[in-house]
Nucleic acid binder design. Structure first.
Lengths: 202, 202
DNA sequence: GTACGAATCGGAACTAAGTCCGCTTACTCG
DNA sequence: CGAGTAAGCGGACTTAGTTCCGATTCGTAC
């Protein structure tokens, strides 16, 4: 039991000033290096040196390379999530579940295609983003839509298959090895969503 | 244009005797060490030392850790593939596509559950098995069944979603973190297959 | 049996991720 | 304002995968 502060403090009230500054410098350095050379050609050492901090600082803050990568993607995903929760339909509330699913899938894949997949590929487990990374946050969103429109499903499993389809390695494989257009990938995902909806509608 | 040999030679006719012997020793050593300590606690050094060969030999033969792992899984998958192609229905030919899909998925997941997922997890990219590893061989099988029973689909994409569901990390997550029974995982996969079939039937 | 070329071998060297721990410094409280 | 203290810092170290290259050995042809 402790006294409540009289003024609202930011969520990171426990972060020391130097720590916050280092975090910003690390993120800035990483952003710049990744943009310059591509994520595949940047080591954690490189980032630490460019940010002027030691390895310990980076790992204390971000845990591992995946953590740093997810943090870099954080801002765009905060924006995206905001649009899901409070934006205009069909991405936001107000459209039918099927339409919202389609809009979500297409937008998510567009983000993947826009550099995100390359970054995720350099994490130890590219597929890990579906469990730990940005996509983990979308599980709930998908689950709500599916539960509403397809209650007869094992919704959790269906959600897993839908997010697995965002796997970075798969995406790059489809786009580059197989030369698919982004539209084909998006259409495929929407077909998967529709198949689940049809199977789970009462 | 060269003379045909009078006697049929094994496929590895170009493999030198010492190379073949080393390959066998490496596989034997790896099998034993993996069984003893678990794949996660065995380094490539350990295998090389136990097999009495150098690192160069291992990497010349198997390319990387994933290659060695896939080779270890090779035998059981050769047997499994044989059952798919020439075994009794419903795994083998002679049953309806839906039944064959279910049988295949259940059997594949049983293999995953039986130690395979742990081994795959120690490769750099656990999900890579669906592109390079044992599952790559099953794409064709799935594609044939789907093309036959659900011609209206983008069969290639549907196949991708079906094999992504064999991802080792996902499997271990479902089984251990979420505590699902193997039956629930198998049922989920069969539901996915059915959803695609229903969506793609004319 | 011998000599030769090429495939193969072995292990040292390289890279990069992630850990450890003694030192430093920002914040707090008297 | 001046300790005290716990969080934070830095960079050497550890570990493991992968690469390289000079030495070796196999298979063959004479």
């Amino acid at each position: 039991m402790q006294e409540l502060p009289l003024t609202a403090l930011p969520a990171e009230q426990t972060e020391r000033a130097d720590a916050a500054s280092n975090r910003r410098r690390i993120l800035a350095a990483a952003t710049e290096l990744f943009a310059q050379r591509g994520a595949a050609c940047v080591s954690m050492q490189d980032v630490a040196k460019a940010a002027g901090v030691g390895m310990g600082t980076m790992y204390r803050r971000f845990g591992d390379r995946a953590g740093l990568t997810f943090a870099l993607l954080g801002e765009r995903h905060r924006v995206f999530q905001e649009r899901l929760l409070h934006g205009a339909p069909p991405l936001g509330p107000g459209a039918l579940a099927a339409e919202r699913l389609h809009a979500f899938g297409r937008a998510r894949i567009a983000l993947l295609d826009d550099g995100e997949a390359d970054m995720l590929l350099t994490t130890a487990d590219p597929g890990g983003s579906t469990l730990r990374g940005p996509d983990a946050a979308y599980r709930t969103h998908l689950a709500i839509l599916l539960r509403e429109a397809a209650p007869a499903l094992d919704v959790e499993y269906a959600v897993d298959t839908l997010v697995m389809a965002f796997d970075a390695r798969l995406h790059l494989h489809l786009r580059h090895e197989r030369g698919w257009t982004i539209a084909r990938v998006q259409d495929g995902w929407c077909a998967l969503a529709d198949a689940w909806l049809a199977a789970g509608a009462r």
